[in-house]
Every structure is written in C-alpha cells, then in structure tokens.
C-alpha cells in the first residue's frame, strides 16, 4: 500500500528525516510516534507528495509518487487537526468540492453517509466559520474518507477534541478500516488513540526510526510498562544536550 524507502530531508539548519524506511500494508493501522521535532510531520508531508525528499522514494498503491503524484493521491485521504476548513463555504459545499477533486461526480450520497458515520449530519448546512474546532476536525476526517481511500493519513486527528468526540472519531475510523480494508498511518500525542486504533507503532527520534512493532512489544523492548513511558524516554533523549545519546533501547 505504502512503501517509503530511504527518505532523507535536510532543512537549512538540520536533518529533519534521516533514512526512514516505512512500509504500510493493506488494512494495517500504524502509528508514527515521537517527540516534537522527531520528523513525523516532515515524513508525512513527503509521503503526501507536498515536500520532496532529498533522497529516497515513495510508492503508494504501486504509483511512484515523484512521477505519478495525482494517481497516487487518489488512493490517499489526509486529515489533520490543525487544518482549517475552506472558508466561505457550507459543510456540504466544502465536502462536494473535495469529493470532486477526487473525481467523484455525484458525491451527495457519500457525503450523507460520511456525515452519518461520525454522527454530524446536522452540520451539513452550517458555514465553516460557525463550527467549533472539534467539529471542523470531524468534517476534515469526513472529507478525507469520502472517496474511500486505500490509505488514510492522519496528523494529530484528535488533538482538539473532547474525550467523547475523540472516542466517536476512533470508532468511525475503525469502522471504516474494518469495512473497506483501509490502511492507516497516523501521528498522535494521545497514546489512548494509538492503543485503541493502531496495531503497530513506529517511533521516530532525530529523524530516524528507533522502534517498530506491536505496541506491547515496543514498550517491553524499552523496559517500560506502556507507550507513554517509551514516549517520555525518547522525549528526554530528544532534548538538546550537546552530547550524542543513543535513542535505541
């Protein structure tokens, strides 16, 4: 489904991503974790084709992203807690716009179904500016899933949500993945998201993958009781100390 090989990205001051290899198989739900500045978002942006890697290549659904970005993007849905809704549009108009960008000529049945899945059908005629940040996130997720993507990429999907709404999002995403066999790659700082939704975690630190496996296996490899412990351990190591420290267990 997704194959990223040898991804490297240098920004002016430092190396953001340093040789990341990541494979996500059909139907697999993977969390990309790590402290702030570990390279998660840059990795996602390279996988989405928005930032070009200095080295390495990405293949999505068999399409080489560098050469066939549009075809590859048809297989992918993306939502992020920080993304705004397109302004001056009602929710249904907004969802129609993006459905059409994915090549769906008559998206209204899919829009109804998507809104229903996350129990927000009452927002269909609301203007984007009338929505709370949590509602905007939900609409963003509906948008990302309208075209039944084979790979769903989510950056902090529950960042601004109340616990009950976050739970609804997790349920909706699991339902979608189970029904359509959608693969998922998500970042989150909320470990309850990860434990409930993902069957595999990939930890990044200093732009490198330092752990990859089922959540329990990764936690025990680091000698921690849970993922939170691994996260805190890596975050501590991520602080700039001037001395090189190993991020590996």
């Amino acid at each position: 489904m997704l194959e990223a090989r040898g991804l490297v990205k240098d920004y002016r001051r430092d190396r953001a991503v340093d040789g990341v290899d990541l494979v996500v198989r059909a139907g697999e739900r993977v969390a990309l974790l790590g402290p702030n500045g570990a390279g998660k978002t840059t990795t996602l942006l390279m996988i989405l084709g928005v930032v070009s890697p200095d080295e390495g290549a990405v293949t999505i659904c068999g399409f080489d992203l560098a050469r066939h970005r549009s075809q590859a993007a048809e297989c992918v849905g993306f939502a992020a807690g920080y993304l705004p809704l397109t302004e001056r549009m009602r929710v249904r108009e907004y969802l129609r716009l993006y459905a059409q960008l994915y090549g769906i000529a008559d998206p209204h049945p899919l829009i109804d179904e998507g809104l229903e899945r996350f129990r927000i059908a009452d927002l269909a005629s609301a203007m984007g500016t009338e929505l709370s940040s949590g509602q905007r996130t939900l609409i963003g997720i509906v948008r990302a899933t309208l075209h039944r993507p084979r790979l769903l990429v989510l950056d902090e999907p529950t960042a601004s949500l109340d616990p009950d709404v976050a739970q609804r999002v997790r349920g909706g995403l699991l339902d979608l993945c189970d029904r359509d066999g959608t693969a998922m790659l998500m970042t989150s700082h909320d470990m309850s998201d990860v434990i409930q939704v993902c069957e595999r975690v990939v930890f990044l630190s200093h732009g490198r993958i330092v752990a990859d496996g089922p959540p329990e296996a990764v936690a025990s490899a680091y000698g921690r009781g849970d993922l939170e412990g691994v996260f805190l351990h890596l975050a501590e190591r991520h602080e700039p100390t001037g001395a090189q420290q190993s991020d590996h267990p």
Binding site: F78, Y98, L101
Partner: peptide
C-alpha cells in the same frame, strides 16, 4: 495543504 494533498 488541503488542496496539495488531493489529486488536483
């Protein structure tokens, strides 16, 4: 970003 991640 909303637009750039689509097949557009």
């Amino acid at each position: 970003l909303n637009l750039m991640v689509t097949p557009l």
